[in-house]
Each structure stands twice: as structure tokens, then as C-alpha cells.
Design a protein around this nucleic acid. Structure first.
Lengths: 334, 334
DNA sequence: TTAAATTTTGTAAGCACTTACATTTTATCC
DNA sequence: GGATAAAATGTAAGTGCTTACAAAATTTAA
């Protein structure tokens, strides 16, 4: 069944059928109804490829994330998909991993697939070395690029993010207020967002006139999903470092810290306070439950999709919107 | 840049360019090279919509899951995407939720989007009431339907699944062997897979001549991601029921059971043994770590994609392959 | 009532490919 | 060397839409 069949059965031209399909208002109500009746009767659906060829778009959005099995990404993907679907867009999912070359290939692929836009989930898509962000600027020349939880200034790039600096500042102050000042900051990523978190931690200390000691900011180089290896990492550090609290850039790391504490026989939060980040299901799964930072992922997703839809409808949209996280106080802090 | 430009610059016809693009072997090596040089020089990429129109395919696969933020689904999606990408297929992701009507719409959408095939992730896509599976049979008339962890006999439907019956049989026997015979089975889904698990539990009891008591098979009606409410559910049951072990259809439920035990002051595994299912990250995140069933999700994903690629290349492929799970013994059992 | 303005409809030219079939070129064999 | 087979290439007809522009029908104004 093609548009020709419909036009014939409805006794109109294909142009008129096309107008009805695309909701053009230059069609008389009677004609429109005639066409709709035929479409209904024969259950006609336009061929997407032909539409694509005609309109140079298939109402498709690319979602890029490093790893869809990561809790944060999984949640983001879910929320974004739901919102996009409501707006009649289809999602192409790409799990790029963390390598620049692969990301470049994936992004290129999406541009060639003629998606209407792409959403990059997570701050690791931005590299410190500005030259490495060329792949994003390239893409942004073709289509709008949306970024979830990353901050990048560029024409045709739109960012929605959480004020990570403020979150860890608040978290650190919360610990300091309890009278604990030797706080280990544990992180697993050197992305912009991760570094902002670290800055928040540092700022809190500086504001109180406390010293910044490098050995209290530990970068865990492994995979954060491997909780045991996080715990082992802390064990190896043990002896050289004394701290009364751990603030982690991520719930996984925080859980790793809990595993370490349990192995060492420390009581949480009496001997050791722990704060995570992301308010993932992991934070509710341990005992005691983890105090963590909620970085309003859902809000971010809604915002990103709203922005995207706005752009595609040629509305002016803000290029950067920053939301605020919230410290969720649970059992791992005093 | 179109195929016409390339043909002109290479001094050949568009048919020849098309042949080169599609790897037809009826092109002389010299001509092929000429064309490739032009393609390279001008960085030409064929228009996907026109290709789609010509070939009636865009090398796209639809992945349907209920909820991409669910750990099991998230993992499956990730693995499937990686495998499909290796084979030059693009993934469209759809999170359908659990309602039949929505699933029907999504599946329809994908068929109309002319995906080459769809993969349904999770056994909830199959309904007990056979009439409700009509939407799958409909789709299977158009394109191959692959199912991950579900069992459905139908032309053009291919299933890869784990022997859930055997897994819970083994898990239950494991507990029984420890001398514990009052075992609570906790489940959260009435899908085929879930019911097979329940059967495994029942069989183990029956094989030992133990009675099947309905009150020891509890269906938790809420959302398994809400761990507290799982714990509350068990608390409400408390008093009426005595059991020395819980086998759960899912790690989330098992963690809920741990929360309950902790609240009640039971020592795990001394007072209560717990076994989960799925070997998700949750199982490694609690203390003690959860004994759980690994149902070889990665293997399943590899199998499904391999099967899919086979079908699309017109190879004969087995319609059903059943893998075996494995009990991962950790700290929540004796 | 008629000319002008407006609305509705149709015609036909894209859009950028694939591929059956025809034609030309090259290789093979006697 | 020429007939024949095989390989390489080209021509042109799809593929099913959108949309600029032209034409027809209807409405409005005088």
C-alpha cells in the first residue's frame, strides 16, 4: 500500500494525501475526512524511508553513553527514552565506551544516519584536552548536540547539569560540622563533573582554613563496578592514612569503602562516615543505608528533552541550565 | 555529495559506484579502486534514507525491554548493543513498560520503522493468556522476533533462555542439604520464567517428599526496586510464618529480605539463609554478599545476536536454545 | 454579476539510492 | 583470427514520499 493507492481510492491526488498525512491545513475538511477514511480502512502507514528521503529526517535521536549497564546511564537512558517517545521521537542507543576514537566513530555514524540530534549522557564525553573535543564540535555543525551532566561551551551544544561543586561542598561541610576534619575524597573519573566535585570538597576545607593534603584525594583507577577492588584499594592505603570520613564521587566507590570498613571491623558511622553520590539503588541496598548526593537525574532528563524538542521546533533555548543536587542523609553519617 | 557526483568524478556510471558500495564482485579491481579513491577523497557517505528506500532496510534492530533502568535489562541492552554494533547494526531502544497495549504500540512502531528484527528482553513479554501474545505473532509475520530469556513457540520467533527451573531446583536443594526445610519462596513476577523458577523450588521439595505449602510461596506485588517495601512486606508476614531460608526470584527481593532480617535482628546466614537471582551488582554490594543464581546473561546476549545475524543472512538457526544457570555461593548461605 | 482574492487541489520534479536488463569489453578456445 | 562465453559496465526504471508551482474551485468585494 502506497500513497498512490490511497490517493486513488480516495479520489484525490497524492499531494493531497501527503498534506493530510503531514497535517497541512490547506485541505478542506471533507477531503481530509475522505482521505483519513481510506487510510483507516486500509490501515495505511507511510513508508518511513521514503518520508526520510523526502524530509531528510526520520524523527530519530541518538543517545550516546559510555556504558548502558552503568546505573547512572541506565537511569538516564530510561528517562530520556520515555520523554522522547512521548514526543514521537525514536531513540538510537550507542554504548561508546570511554575511548575517544570509538566515540568519534559512533558520533559520526549517528550524523550519517541523519538523526535529528544526539544526547551525550555523562561528563566523560568532554575531554580536558580541548583538541580532543573536536569530534563534538564537528557534530554540532550538523545537528544540535545535547549534553546531560556535562558543561561545554560551543555553538549548537546545549547542556543540562547539576551543580556538582555545590553538592560536594555541602557534603563536606556536613561532615566538617560533625567535627570530622580528616576526610578522604575518593574518585574514579577525571571528567569535568568529577573535577568539579573534587573542587567542592577542596573549597569546603579551604573555607575553614584547613590544609589541602594531596594524599587525602585518592583516584581509584579501576572499574567502579568491581566493589571488591575498591575495598582492596583502600586496604592498601591503610596504615599510611588516617581519616574519619570518606566522600566518594560515586555510590559504587562509597559501597567499596563500606566493604573496606566492614573488613577492617570499623563501625559505620561511628568510626567512619561515608557519603556517596548519585542516589542509586546501591545506596539503599547496603546496611546502614548510604548517605548520598541526589543529583536530580530525572529533572535533568526532562530538561534535556524539553530543550531538544524546543530546538527542533526552532525555539530559542538556553544553552546551559544548572540544577542543584541535594544531600540525602541516611545511615552512613552521624 | 551524491552517488552521481562520485560516478562523475570517477568516470563511471552510478551503477558501478553502487556496486562498489555494496561490495558486489562484478567490478574490475581497477574500477573499484578508482571509485574508492573518489569516495575517500571526498569523504562520501551514501544517504541512508535513499539506501533504505532502495534496499527496504536500514540495518536497524529494535530492542524492547520493559524498563531500561532495571539492572537485568540494562545489562542485556549493553551487551546486545555491543554485539550488534560489531555486526554493523544500529539499535533502536524502546522501554515499553509492562502494559500490553503499550507494548503492542511500540512493536507496531518498530515494524513500521522497518527494523530488520526485534529483540524482546525479558520473559514478561509473553503473557499467560495466549490471546494476548497475538501482538508478537503479528510482528513475527513481518520480521524475525528474538526473545531473551523467554520461551515462545511460534514461526519466526527465536528464543534464548536459561533453565530457570534447574537453577531454583539446585538452589533449593542446596538449602535443603544444609538441613533447612522451611524455605520461603519470594517472587515478584508471574512471567513464564518466574513461574519456571517457582516450579523448580516446588520440585525440589516434592522430590524429597516435603509438603508444598502455599503460604511459603509469596508473591510480592510491589516494585522490586523499592527495597524497603519488600522488607515491609516480609515484616507483615512475620509471626504467621516460620522459615529458615528465603529463595527470591530476583536479587532485589533478596536484598529486601536481608533488610527485613537486619531489622528483625536475625543473623545471616546463621538464623536465615538467603538466595537471590541474577547475580546483579546488588548481590555484591550487601554484607554478607548474596548467594545468587547467575543466569549467564552475557552468554544469552551473544547467542541471541549470533542467531539474529544468522537469520538475517538466511542461515538456518535453532529456534530455541536453553543455557544453564549456576549457583554462586557467597555469604548469605551456610 | 463579475473581477479579484483566497482557498483547495493537482502536476511534476525532486530526493539518492538499487538493480534488472542491455550493452560493451575482455577472455577463452578451437 | 573469429566465434563464443564470461566479465564489466551502463541505461533506465523503480523505491514512495515531499513540495514548488500551476491550475481549478470557491469566496469575497464591489
Amino acid at each position: 500500500m502506497t500513497i498512490y493507492d490511497v490517493s486513488e481510492k480516495a479520489g484525490v491526488s497524492i499531494a493531497t494525501v501527503s498534506r493530510v498525512l503531514n497535517g497541512s491545513d490547506n485541505v478542506s475538511p471533507q477531503t481530509r475526512q475522505k482521505v483519513l477514511d481510506v487510510i483507516e480502512a486500509y490501515d495505511y502507514t507511510p513508508n518511513v524511508f521514503a518520508c526520510g528521503l523526502g524530509l531528510n529526517s526520520m524523527n530519530t535521536i541518538g543517545i550516546l553513553c559510555a556504558d548502558a549497564s552503568d546505573l547512572y546511564s541506565a537511569n538516564a537512558i530510561y528517562n530520556i527514552e520515555q520523554e522522547l517517545h512521548k514526543n514521537n521521537y525514536t531513540c538510537i542507543l550507542c554504548c561508546t565506551g570511554y575511548k575517544l576514537a570509538d566515540r568519534q566513530k559512533y558520533l559520526n555514524l549517528l550524523v550519517n544516519q541523519k538523526v535529528d540530534s544526539v544526547i551525550l549522557v555523562g561528563s566523560t564525553f568532554i575531554y580536558d584536552n580541548e583538541a580532543e573535543n573536536e569530534y563534538i564540535r564537528e557534530a554540532a555543525k550538523e545537528i544540535p548536540v545535547l549534553m546531560l551532566n556535562a558543561d561545554y561551551d560551543c555553538e549548537n551544544v546545549y547542556c543540562g547539569l547539576c551543580d556538582d561543586f555545590k553538592s560536594t561542598l555541602q557534603a563536606t561541610n556536613f561532615i566538617l560540622d560533625k567535627g570530622i576534619s580528616d576526610i578522604l575524597y575518593l574518585y574514579n573519573s577525571k571528567s569535568y563533573s568529577a573535577m568539579r566535585k573534587l573542587s567542592g570538597y577542596q573549597s569546603a576545607l579551604v573555607q575553614r582554613g584547613l590544609p589541602l593534603r594531596m594524599e587525602y584525594m585518592q583516584y581509584f583507577p579501576g572499574n567502579h563496578a568491581d566493589l571488591t577492588s575498591v575495598a582492596d584499594f583502600l586496604s592498601e592505603l591503610d596504615g599510611t592514612l588516617r581519616y574519619g570520613a570518606v566522600i566518594a564521587g560515586d555510590d559504587n566507590l562509597a559501597i567499596g569503602a563500606m566493604k573496606f570498613a566492614q573488613k577492617k571491623g570499623l563501625s559505620i558511622p561511628r568510626d567512619l562516615s561515608i557519603i556517596g553520590c548519585n542516589n542509586s539503588i546501591l545506596s539503599r541496598c547496603c546496611e546502614p543505608e548510604l548517605t548520598t548526593i541526589d543529583n536530580c537525574l530525572e529533572t535533568l532528563c526532562h530538561h534535556i528533552v524539553k530543550t531538544l524538542i524546543g530546538i527542533l521546533n526552532n525555539s530559542e533555548m538556553p544553552q546551559k541550565v544548572i540544577f542543584s543536587g541535594e544531600l540525602i542523609k541516611r545511615g552512613t553519617t552521624l
